[in-house]
Amino acid sequence: MWVVVFLFLFGACGGTTEEGGASKEGGGVSGKLVLTGSSTVAPLAGEIGRRFEERHPGVRVDVQTGGSSRGIADVRSGVAGIGMVSRWLKPEESDLEAYTIAMDGVCLIVHRDNPVARLTGEQVIGLYRGKIVDWKEVGGKPGPVTVVNKAEGRATLEVFLGHFGLKSEEIEADIIIGDNQQGIKTVSGNPGAIGYVSIGAADFEARRGAPLRLLPLDGVEATVENVASGRFPMSRPLNLVTVGKVPALAKKFIDFARSKEVHDLVRKQTYVPYEGNGEK
């Protein structure tokens, strides 16, 4: 009963715009666009959305979050017009179109007091499979290794697994975390820990004084520049995905999100702007 009352009271004054609908009146666009998906992309998409709204006063861009998998599910079910996915698409996701708006490198991080300067691919695999349990085995100070892994469904996990050819069930993790910041906090609070996070975020926090060290990978330093140039081997795209025919409003937003007009926003979110070579 209360629900009905509320719908009457408040339904009248809002929510009349149709999802993803676009009308061409005087060349402009209007309507409401819903984005859901990756929590990594969400803050960036929110900022891009706000700038887009400023340019097109009749438009509302609602950014929701919940993870890349949810973004894909929502765009398939039509709940969202655009999904946000922070990894390469998989073969079974060929029904989707991906548009890269930024790149994000993923690197291994250890505590600043950990003397280990580099790890080979085998060493990383050994650490994450639980074969190497003490830092002295890889040339560090004796002490137990705390393996920090990402939760299932996280894009960073899939990027990491893909790069090292690992399977999720092989990993023997001590701590399972969700988001980048959580990984950074866990490793900076634990001198024996090793984890992997977004380079942009790790670099940002390390500059602000977090006791972190970013490990190079295959001899390439983990820097934003190396991600931008494409030299850093473990990186992922931040994608907007759509399914089927894309309405004009969504198309316009995607074009805007891939344009130079948003590069400052991408950099501010510690990612590398899209320069035109990613997925189409």
């Binding site: 009271l9 408040f10 339904g11 004054c13 929510g15 509302r60 609602d62 950014v63 979050t65």
Partner: peptide
């Protein structure tokens, strides 16, 4: 709330806004 009221930071115009 993350999947229901959502993530939008715009000033809500009605109860049907996120």
């Amino acid at each position: 709330l993350i999947f229901t009221s959502g993530y939008v930071t715009r000033m809500p115009a009605s109860l049907l806004d996120s």
